Simulated scan of single mutants.
Amino acid sequence: MAGVKALRWLNLTRHGESTGNLAYAATIGTDAEEAGITERDADIPLSDTGRVQAAKLGRWLAALPADERPTRVIASPYLRTLDTARIALAQTPYAAPQDPGGLRLLVDERIRDREQGPLQGLTGLGVRRRFPAEAERMRGLGKFYYRPPGGESWADLALRLRSFYRDLEADAPDERVLVVTHDAIVVVTRYLVEGLSEREILEIEKTPVGNASVSRWRRDGSGLRAVSYNDSAHLTDAGVVAPRVP
């Protein structure tokens, strides 16, 4: 994929834990049909734990060797990703938005989370009970190609990500890029960068992408080579106090 191969480093991180993540977790093992999230998807905030995770991510960024530090940071426009990026960058001495020479946080709507139409906010049980025809269609088409009414399939995500990475190649050739985004975007990026099949990526997706985990690819010859995927080792340190968004 030319738009990705031109980069020197590609780093992706999922946002820190959100209140939406907690709401869905609370429905596990229950007969709830909805997660009970009152905000629109774009406005779901980080939890306290998510803010701590973002700070730890920032400390990891600050400790990177100079030749691996991001030269460009791009975030999804959703609140949980923007706050993750802001908190993380505030921990890094080389990221000073107030300095004309500092690292700016850029925003791109093409790396937002997947649109799910009327299925947004429903549990699996809720989809089966309220939209049985859609649940059946999902089973028939499979997760990669199923598109909810008014929503997006994973294949749709691949289309907008191809556009995102093509533009990134034009704007930031040979740069070290950090993308702060959502779990589905991390997974589909791996599908694109590594040229995986539908079967391969759906097998990988069975292991959830961790909040504030890091996936990295480095240019090696003419393409990008995987360095790590879904790595959360930097989140294991203790004693971090949840910061305010700067």
Rank of each mutant, 00 (worst) to 15 (best):
V241G: 03
E109N: 12
V177I: 15
T207N: 11
V187R: 13
D83Y: 10
R137K: 14
A2V: 11
E194T: 13
R110D: 05
R139P: 00
Q116C: 08
R86K: 15
V186R: 01
R104N: 06
Y146C: 04
R176V: 09
F164H: 12
R139H: 09
G151E: 12
L64P: 10
N21C: 07
V4N: 01
L224P: 09
T38R: 14
L64K: 09
A35P: 06
G102M: 12
G239Y: 07
P132H: 13
D183L: 00
A172V: 11
R139E: 15
I111M: 09
I185N: 15
V180E: 06
H234L: 09
A75H: 09
R190C: 08
T81L: 07
R160A: 02
G20L: 02
Y191Q: 02
D237E: 14
R40Y: 06
P70R: 11
S215R: 05
R110P: 03
L106M: 11
L79S: 02
Q116A: 07
N21F: 05
E17Y: 06
D41R: 11
R112K: 14
R110G: 05
G223K: 12
I204C: 00
T30Q: 10
P173E: 10
K56P: 00
G117F: 07
N11K: 10
E152W: 02
K56D: 00
M138H: 13
T27M: 04
D41Q: 12
M138R: 15
L235T: 01
Y94G: 10
R137C: 01
P70Y: 08
L61S: 09
L122T: 07
P93W: 11
G121N: 08
P93H: 13
W9Y: 15
